[in-house]
Every structure is written in structure tokens, then in C-alpha cells.
Amino acid sequence: MCRPDFFTVSYRINPWMHPEKPTDTLLAVRQWESLYRIYLDLGFDVRLIDPVDGLPDMVYAANGGFVIDNIAYGASFTYAQRQPEGPAYMDWFRANGFDVRVPENVNEGEGDFLLVGDTILAGTGFRSASNSHHELAEISGREVVTLELVNPSFYHLDTAIAVLDPQPGFVDPNIAYLPSAFDEAGLAVLRERFPDALLVNEEDATVLGLNSFSDGHNVVIASRAKDFERQLAERGYNPIGVDLSELLLGGGGVKCCTLELRR
């Protein structure tokens, strides 16, 4: 995770961002600290990367890379404003003992790569290039399934899919998703692979309810995603709501603030 000490919205690279509107950095920090405390209370080992002045989106740590089997596949961002984040995260991975692979193709880390069981779901259409999917498949030795995103408000895969049972080897892992975020080919894949998936409504998706983190039982979600909360509870999960409304002004939520380090 990365504290949002320098968070602001000074440019526009997604539909959520409106630089003409004010942001409250101190509020963003307080909300982020609430998420951080939730993780600590759940017993998670949380590592922090130092924020860099001039990189306000660095708080969205999920975009910093994709880590599996101690291999850190670095990020290569689409927009110039975020491109310095890639080397900053790769430097942190190296300093913390990960095997860093410098990307040859544009990708935005866990924003577009989601591990579901032993399979990696990979988004394209707005940010990560589809050839990065082939690159990650070669690096990880995992099956990588390409999904085309079609709604610009859900420009990263982690805004349109929530992984509910994330552990490799999990029997019949499940997800939740927003159907309108995908083209018909992607929907066919999701319906075939995840027939019992939770289908989330537009209202909950618009507060980035799907941009959530699950350990297989506890699911940390946007506190305003009430119907998704209900669905999770009915399926036996423990939804935990958190208010990250200030960070939503930059287009991020719970998952965006959370990069998983899989040793």
C-alpha cells in the first residue's frame, strides 16, 4: 500500500477525474488509514511503499505490478502522468527480494490482472495492451484469459470484477462482476467459467463496489455498495464496508489501493 500524502486530482486520464473540482488530501489520508487499519485488524501483513511527490496516483498500488511466485511483473503505464510509477514500484520490489521482470508491453498491473484460483483474468480495451497478456503467461506459467472492457467508466478489470475466492488451488473459485462492462465474447467466457457469479448492479459498480479485496471470507468493499453487501452476506461472505469516497475522485477504491504480494 502507499499512503496518499500527495493525493490530488490535477489532470484527467479517466472519467472519474475532474481537476476543476477541489480535493481534500487530509481526508484522503484519513480514509486510506481506515482501510489500512481494517487490513491490520484482519491480521494481514501490510507492506508500505513511500509516496513520491508529484505522483498523486501512486496511492493506487494495485497498478504498480503483478506479483506471483515471488516474481514481480512490472507495470508500464499508458499515460505519461503515471509512467514514473512503474520504475518506483520495480525499485521497491527489488529492494524487498522479488524477482523483477521489466515489462516489454504496456500493462497496469493488478488493475488489469486478477488471479482467480490458478487462472489469471486479464483486461484490455482501455489501458493494458493485449500483448502484455501473452508476456505475463510466459513469465508466470499460468493460463491468462483475455477479457475486453467496453465501458470507459470501468477502464481497469478490477473495477468490473471482484475476486471472491482468490487463493490458488481453491476449488471452484467465484467472482462478482458487472455485465455491461464487457463485450459479448467476454461475457460468454465469464458465464461459462463462473456460472454462480454474483451479478452486481450499475449503482453499486459506480461507487466502485467491485473494486474490493477478499481473503475468501472477509470482503472489504465500498460502504455505499449496499446491494453488493447484501449479496455477499447471503452467500456466506463477511462484507466489510469502508468509505474511500475521496480517493474515488481519482478513480480508485479498495482494490486499487491494494497490491497483493504472492511469495
Rank of each mutant, 00 (worst) to 15 (best):
S132N: 02
A122G: 04
T146F: 01
H156E: 03
L121D: 06
D158H: 01
N151A: 13
S132W: 00
G141D: 08
P152K: 03
L147D: 10
T124I: 01
D158I: 09
A137Q: 13
R142V: 11
V145G: 14
F154R: 08
H156W: 08
F154Y: 15
A122C: 13
E135H: 11
A122F: 12
E138T: 10
V150A: 03
G141A: 05
S130R: 15
H134E: 15
H156P: 15
S132V: 00
T159R: 03
E143C: 03
G141L: 15
I139M: 06
S130H: 06
F126D: 13
H133R: 14
S130E: 15
T119W: 02
H133K: 03
E138W: 08
N151Q: 02
L121W: 02
A122I: 09
I139P: 08
G125E: 09
P152Q: 05
T159D: 07
Y155W: 13
E138A: 14
L149V: 04
Y155Q: 04
L157K: 06
S140I: 05
E143K: 14
S128K: 03
L157A: 09
G141P: 13
H133T: 01
Y155M: 09
T119R: 15
E148M: 11
L157N: 08
S153C: 05
G125D: 10
F154D: 04
Y155V: 04
T159A: 07
R127T: 15
V144S: 14
R142N: 11
E143T: 10
L136V: 15
V150Y: 04
L147M: 03
Y155C: 12
T146P: 09
G141F: 08
N151Y: 00
N151D: 15
G123R: 00
E135M: 01
I120K: 07
A137C: 08
P152H: 06
T159I: 06
G125M: 14
T119C: 14
L149F: 11
R127M: 11
I120V: 15
I120W: 01
V145R: 07
R142H: 12
S130N: 05
S130C: 12
H134M: 01
T124N: 10
E138L: 05
A122S: 15
G141I: 01
L147E: 14
L121P: 13
E138M: 15
V150I: 15
I120P: 09
L121F: 13
G125F: 00
L157M: 03
D158T: 06
H133P: 03
R142Y: 12
A160C: 02
E138Y: 11
A129I: 00
E138S: 08
A129C: 00
T159Q: 08
S153K: 00
H133A: 04
A122Q: 10
L149P: 09
I139W: 11
G123V: 03
F154M: 04
G123M: 05
Y155R: 05
L121C: 12
